[in-house]
Design a protein around this nucleic acid. Sequence first.
DNA 1: CGGTACATTGAAGGGGCTCAATCCACGTGG
DNA 2: CCACGTGGATTGAGCCCCTTCAATGTACCG
Lengths: 255, 255
Amino acid sequence: MAPQPPTAKPFSITPLTRKIASFVEFSPVEIEVLENLQSTTRLVRRNREIVSEGRNYDTLFVLLDGIALRSRILRDGRRQVLNIALPGDFIGFPGCFFESALYSIPALTDCVISPIPFAILVGLFDRQPRLAATIFWSFACEAAMYAEHLIDVGRRSALERVAHFLLELLTRLQVIGLADERSFRMPVTQELIGDALGLSVPHVNRTLRQLRQDELVRIEEHVVILQDVEALAALADFERSYLSLFRLPALVAQS
Amino acid sequence: MAPQPPTAKPFSITPLTRKIASFVEFSPVEIEVLENLQSTTRLVRRNREIVSEGRNYDTLFVLLDGIALRSRILRDGRRQVLNIALPGDFIGFPGCFFESALYSIPALTDCVISPIPFAILVGLFDRQPRLAATIFWSFACEAAMYAEHLIDVGRRSALERVAHFLLELLTRLQVIGLADERSFRMPVTQELIGDALGLSVPHVNRTLRQLRQDELVRIEEHVVILQDVEALAALADFERSYLSLFRLPALVAQS
DNA sequence: CGGTACATTGAAGGGGCTCAATCCACGTGG
DNA sequence: CCACGTGGATTGAGCCCCTTCAATGTACCG
């Protein structure tokens, strides 16, 4: 599905564990608990919904493999893609904390997910506070992505938006070892980009052409190549701190 | 600052307590713990910053009185207002969970705030899991507001955006007893609305004029009157469930 | 009385949309 | 092996929503 991760890890380590453990040093016991949380798995086929807007859930899910979207369809058919869920992400926040899910989560590719009942998650706060705090933090990180996305759509031009969108994807995929220095593989259609950024398909097309002509981005056969990451970051005013500079270590040490 | 709350409560109850207790039935002990969290207060003057982007914090804050903004200023001076913080809201999520705050939080009016150290918040998960879960949920609610805001800016017209924005404010203010059936008092400038919704000031002006001509909204002397809430909700496709229909009771019962 | 903050209005322009046609790769069934 | 359908990319023409720039009005305030 993507380039191999740069660092080899034991095959039993899931993307969630890898992501979370890349920030905090966990004990073997904590790692084991974390892995056990993900022991039940389920396969969801491409284009089916992992979560459906309006239905009621009493589990969260961890996305173990594949890519999913969080999206809302408006009455008149317009669609807004809120976010893209990558391996290691929790699915169901914040929607699942409501009586009925606020958004749908369709699988963009075949997905392997692992349900985590609320009750277990809540119990974690007692028995594994460091783990709980880490999971808790990951929700804060997701909220920060929404906020950053909001700035994107509210105050940036189409060119800046697309650049920012691709840079965020690159950075997030790098964290979980699914992207190399400047490229990644993902079935991003222009319709998807448009629905994420509030643009029409024709205009996404023209914007991508512009980026191609400026030799900044190439998309070929579902492989996205950011030819000049520096220039793109300058263009989009991209600050990666909201994806990495979190203060979990301090938080956890205090508890 | 606004119409009187519809239900009389003991004067010692803070807006946070009132808001949280409106969803879940708490014991007297829990109420007391919740109140004690807010025993230290600080006054922040209008136009000063409660939180400054880039600085480091080890407390969250509860907004006890007044109105604050969460916002980001881009390099070229464009501003995006992410959200409006009302009495009873937590301030500092998600920004304060990062090494340096991601956004600034300027006080729109004089504000009374109460700092809550991270350490205490984390400790709460042990000793008062119901309270902790409730606070936890309020973060989910905030994330949902970001997502809803994103849909607004990404896929709705200026008219729909303004209508949705005002409806959300009305609903949130009603929850804390600061709005009556169809109006509230708040110093919303057209610049603020524009920066929240990704619109220019002149266009906000024209949009408001349209709403006024259609006899849907009047803004006079900082008092916002939604003359026809039903029609506005239909226009904006406003669904209040993301502000109220949360499933905390079930969550807490399980723990 | 001048300064500041905000609302209002007009003119002109552009960024992005809508509508529509075309093209291409791919899969599927006859 | 070809015909056909489908999903997606691409391109063009026309236009409109919203922006930018600029001027004016109007409170309020030290």
